[in-house]
């Protein structure tokens, strides 16, 4: 086993060169280069975190703006609806007034017409009565030879007409 057989001859050389080369490894690579590599990693992690934070902030801002836009939109819609309702109400009122006026006119016309009809009817009835009285006088004169005076005949006709 050379490790033991050569121990006395080689241990000092082994120790010396190990210390030299491990020393170089430690001071040049471990102390000099590794921290820089780790700095790079750390700065990249920092950058990623910062980018993520910026993206989150931007998203939050966008959300906020959208919310504001939504509120404004709702307000606008409500205002528009109010205007529409007002217009509708005004229209309804106007047409109501117009309708009322038209109704009044129609009612008046109707009342006039009814009055005329009633007049005509009364006149017609009076004529019918007169005709009936004359007819009754004629009939009585012809059948009974009795001359009935006009008032009597009128009374009788009126009685009969009242009975139907």
């Amino acid at each position: 086993m050379p490790q033991i057989a050569q121990l006395a001859d080689t241990w000092s050389s082994q120790v010396f060169w190990l210390l030299v080369f491990f020393g170089i490894t430690f001071f040049v690579i471990g102390k000099g280069m590794v921290p820089k590599v780790m700095d790079t990693v750390a700065s990249r992690d920092g950058q990623i975190a910062a980018d993520l934070a910026a993206a989150k902030a931007a998203r939050d801002a966008a959300d906020e703006q959208e919310e504001a836009w939504r509120v404004k939109e709702n307000e606008n819609r409500a205002a528009a609806q109010a205007i529409v309702a007002k217009a509708k109400e005004a229209g309804a009122k106007k047409s109501e007034t117009k309708l009322k006026a038209a109704q009044t006119r129609i009612d008046k016309k109707l009342a006039d017409a009814e009055a005329r009809i009633a007049e005509a009817r009364t006149a017609a009835l009076a004529e019918v009565e007169a005709v009936a009285v004359e007819a009754a006088q004629d009939i009585v004169k012809t059948l009974a030879g009795v001359k009935v005076t006009k008032p009597v005949a009128t009374k009788a006709v009126k009685e009969q007409m009242a009975h139907g």
Partner: peptide
């Protein structure tokens, strides 16, 4: 102390 540059030292150098 003997500090001969041996094959062992050479491979330490190569490793480094």
């Amino acid at each position: 102390y003997n500090i001969a540059f041996t094959n062992s030292a050479l491979w330490m150098l190569i490793t480094t």
